[in-house]
């Protein structure tokens, strides 16, 4: 599963970006680490992949990665999704570094929409791709106003949204991109990961870096930092659960994807984290199998 380092494409600098740009990005990252959860503007570059497809994450990864690193790229938890394959290939081609699908072997993990099920260590870095870095954007469209709200820690309106959810549905409705408060100060978007993954961010060993290319923002959570999901005392934050297990490895605790198996309403669930699922199968776990058994 681990692909060794390959010859780097000679037409480009190591990891595509020129060294000046990498330094600029690193300065932004350092500032972001120093002010956990604060969005640091940076001179995001045009990349050879479209905006919204991970250009922020790619620039962050390109700026921190070195020859000795081993890169894992996931999208929706899986290494084999098209966008993950594409980004992994991009780095294999422009940096010639080793890549892996094994979470434990990776030194840098770039992700879109998930955090691996396995606990990350403090010698690892996880890089999130972020489409909309501003957690207040849905309540206030103007950047000038949201910057001010962050400056003044004026976050009451976020709770207004949660209040509305409870008044309307009896519980908080946000299921992904669930806002978090970092180290008791900055309200932050965790990127569109399911809220299932929010607790993993709290006191995580790995450095967490967030890159938003189109919106030109970088932010970070240093290792072992307090990350609280917003809630009310009498309506505490809760993660989603499934009344099902993975058809392949039988796990009932991991985040499950629904796969539609026919046009008669048949479906089954499988682990979204393909590496996690594979590891469990190797360890001898077995799920109920395909659609016939599960429906």
């Amino acid at each position: 599963m681990t692909a060794p380092a390959t010859a780097q494409d000679s037409g480009y600098n190591f990891a595509y970006l020129d060294e000046q740009t990498k330094r600029m990005v690193r300065r932004a990252i350092l500032k972001a680490v120093a002010i956990p959860g604060h969005q640091v503007p940076f001179g995001s570059r045009e990349m050879p992949l479209p905006y919204g497809w991970g250009t922020g994450g790619i620039q962050v990864t390109a700026s921190i990665i070195g020859l000795a690193d081993v890169l894992k790229v996931i999208d929706q938890g899986a290494d084999d999704t098209t966008n993950a394959v594409s980004i992994r290939r991009f780095f294999a081609r422009t940096a010639g570094i080793a890549t892996t699908e094994k979470t434990e072997d990776a030194t840098v993990i770039q992700t879109r929409h998930r955090i691996p099920e396995m606990n990350l260590r403090d010698d690892q870095i996880i890089v999130y791709q972020v489409p909309i870095p501003e957690p207040l954007r849905w309540l206030e469209a103007r950047e000038t106003e949201t910057r001010k709200m962050h400056g003044l820690a004026d976050y009451g309106v976020m709770h207004v949204k949660l209040y509305e959810d409870i008044a309307k549905y009896g519980h908080i409705e946000t299921s992904y991109d669930y806002p978090v408060l970092i180290n008791g100060r900055y309200l932050m978007s965790p990127s569109p990961i399911p809220k299932f993954d929010n607790p993993k961010m709290h006191e995580m060993g790995a450095l967490q870096l967030f890159g938003a290319g189109r919106e030109k923002r970088i932010y970070a959570i240093p290792p072992y930092t307090r990350v609280e999901s917003l809630d009310f005392e009498d309506h505490p934050f809760q993660v989603q659960t499934w009344g099902a297990v993975c058809a392949i490895c039988g796990d009932g605790e991991s985040f499950l994807d629904e796969v539609i198996t026919d046009d008669q309403g048949g479906s089954m669930y499988i682990c979204s984290d393909t590496d996690h699922c594979g590891r469990r199968v190797v360890a001898g776990h077995k799920g109920p199998g395909g659609p016939e058994e599960s429906t």
Binding site: V160, I166, A167, K168, D231, F232
Partner: peptide, 27 residues
């Protein structure tokens, strides 16, 4: 007023802005 949120949320906003975090008490 915030026309996009309920009357209750409009009234409760100030409480939440200054740190009220108990839904029942706010309500």
């Amino acid at each position: 007023l915030r026309m996009g949120v309920s009357a209750g949320a409009n009234v409760g906003e100030r409480l939440m802005a200054v740190g009220a975090r108990h839904y029942g008490a706010i309500r």
